[in-house]
């Protein structure tokens, strides 16, 4: 981490940019949005419950998008939910991050062939960390949260305003009009 690393002086003076300090602060208390969708949501609950305890890393679930920093997409997103998911994402205050949890959110998973399933949530919102698995274990989600923490704290990967991806609403079109093969 640049803030604490390269410019340390013997007089206990630390030199760095304000961005580094802000990013360090942001990375230490990231609040995910309580938005359970499918099977992965049960493992998401597990990861913040007794044995795995994500609270110790500062990940504390908030019920409203206005107070949340991270959206964990924990399950299959279909066309009906996709519009709501984008609305929720837009309601979150910037800077905001997205974790795609599980095979369904990554690319459609076992339901990829279905007529109503969006092939990956990254068609609708930009994704920072992908977690593989069906469903991923709570440890895998914790690792993703810690990876995201490092990403936020690292000045080389810091959030750049104005690079948000636009949603591709074509994927939410009616079955048969979305230009792909499905059952």
């Amino acid at each position: 981490m640049a803030l604490l690393g390269n410019e340390r002086r013997p007089e206990n003076i630390v030199l760095g940019t304000l961005d580094d300090l802000i990013n360090l602060a942001r990375s230490r208390s990231m609040w995910p949005l309580t938005f359970g969708i499918a099977c992965c949501a049960i493992e998401m609950m597990n990861s913040s419950a007794t044995r795995y305890d994500a609270d110790r890393f500062g990940f504390f679930y908030r019920n409203t998008p206005r107070q949340a920093d991270v959206m964990i997409v924990s399950g299959t997103v279909n066309k009906k939910l996709g519009k709501r998911l984008r609305v929720l994402y837009d309601q979150m205050a910037e800077p905001r991050w997205v974790i795609s949890m599980g095979a369904c959110a990554n690319q459609g998973g076992p339901f990829r062939q279905g007529y109503s399933v969006v092939e990956g949530v990254d068609k609708i919102v930009p994704v920072d960390v992908y977690v593989p698995g069906c469903p991923p274990r709570p440890e895998a989600l914790l690792q993703a949260l810690l990876l995201l923490r490092d990403k936020v704290a690292d000045p080389d990967m810091r959030y750049i305003p104005g690079t948000q991806m636009e949603a591709d609403f074509d994927v939410l079109a009616e079955p048969g009009k979305d230009g792909r093969e499905h059952l």
């Binding site: 299959t76 279909n78 939910l81 709501r84 076992p110 339901f111 007529y115 109503s116 059952l183």
Partner: peptide, 10 residues
């Protein structure tokens, strides 16, 4: 229908 994922069809 927010989690309809075509179980029966698949």
């Amino acid at each position: 229908g927010f989690l309809h994922r075509n179980h029966e069809k698949i």
